[in-house]
Every structure is written in C-alpha cells, then in structure tokens.
Amino acid sequence: MQNSNDHIVRSFDKELRTIHEIIIRMGGMAENQLAEAVDALVQRDSAKAELVRAEDAKIDLLEEELEAAVVQLIALRQPVANDLRAVISALKISSDLERIGDYAKNIAKRSIAINQMPPQKSVTSIMRMSKLVQEIVKDTLDAFSHSDKDRAIDVWHRDEEVDEMYTSLFRELLTYMMEDPRNIGACTHMLFIAKNIERMGDHATNIAETIYYLSTGHKLEGKRPKGDRTPFQILSTEEDDDDNSEVEI
C-alpha cells in the first residue's frame, strides 16, 4: 500500500517538474530569439533573420507540448492548492513566452525588409531598448527558475523604463521621418519593431505577475506602472508636463 502511494506522488512530482522544465526551455528559446532577431537587425544579417523565423516554430511546438502535459495532468491528478496554481501559471507563462517568440519572429521579418534599404541611424536606439527588455526578460526567467518573488516585483516595476524608452524612440523616429520622407519606409518598420520590443516587455511583466501569484497566491497589488505616452504624442506642440519621473538606466 505504502509503496504504491509513494509511487503516485513521485510521478506527480515528476510531471510537475517536466512542466517546469518545458517553461524554462521555452524561456531560454524566447530569450535567445529576441537577441538573435535584434542582432540580425543591427548586423544587417538577413540569413540570421531567416534562421530566427524558422526557429519560432520550435517554441510553438513546445507550447503545444506543454498544453498537452497540463491537460493530462489536470485530468489525471486533479491538482489543488499550490499545485493547481503551478499548473495554471505554467499555462499563462507559456502563452506569454510564445507571444514574445512571435514578436521576435516579426522583428526578424521586418529586419529582412530593412536590410534592403540604406542603414538607419535609429538602429542603435533600438539596440539599447532591446538590451533593456532583454535584461527584463532574463530577470523574469531567473525569478521563475528560482521562484524568487522579490525579483519578480523588481521586474514588474521596471517595465516603466521600457515605456519611457519607447516614447523617446517614437519621437526620434518621427523626427527622422520629417527630416527626409525617404526615411519613412524604414522608419515605419523601426517603429513597429520598437513597439514589438515594448510589447515583449509587457509580456515579461505579465510573467512577473504570474510568478508573484504562483509563489504567494495573491495578485500583485497596486497600479501597473505605465510610461507609454505615445498615444498623446503630437509633434508640433511643446509638451509641458512637469510631473517627475524616475528612470533607471
């Protein structure tokens, strides 16, 4: 009797661990995809961009694998309490990671188009922004693999910087477009790339929220930091806002 009980618990643990491991694999891939996509853009390397596009399918496959594992686990084990939280969180995190992968793929696709045009100055700004997001994604995944809720809170607060950066980039790109209409094609792609990167930051923030929920059982309190002001951006008028901001560089 005792033995069979042990066995059931152990295989349950094993299944949970498999799910955890799939998430970490997905995270590693998404992280890598972002780095490679931006590298392809900065180095104007279309071959690398193609590779990133092809690689995205693997993340999707992993997501399917995870979904199957989760469904099976729920059906067979009917998890409760923190096991249930772990399973539900895994599902949420995987869909966020899958989206991050999709955005990376989109960046790669656009970089192929941009490579047909003359080099753009704004690439360096995109690179800086992507580094920031890369850091956030990394810290989020580290927080997940160490179940470190403090780090998750920190990441959650840092999304604001990405939004600030996006606002600044938005202005910069608009200026380039006004300077020379021939830039509009490439700059529009850049604008979408910047938006994609900013969305990745948002997904990382979502994951951070999920990690917090996973380890505490509560939702993260307080208003989600918001720094994206582009919806209110008008070029010709001077902005005169004097609310202070804190940005971590």
């Binding site: 700004s125 800086r128 403090d150 780090r151 809170i153 920190d154 910087e161 600030e164 950066m165 606002t167 600044s168 202005r171 902005e239 806002d241 901001s245 940005v247 560089i249």
Partner: peptide
Amino acid sequence: RRLGRPSVAIAIIDQGDGIPREHIPRL
C-alpha cells in the same frame, strides 16, 4: 531588492534647470 543584497544609495541632488522627461532614458 534592486541589488539583491544590502546596498548603499548615494543621491546627488542639484537645483538647476532639470531635464525634460523624454531625455532621461538616453542621458
């Protein structure tokens, strides 16, 4: 939380013109 270990924060505060928000991330 920022550093993941005990830390010291030193702030240098000036009374000047200030920096417009959009420049801060790129300073």
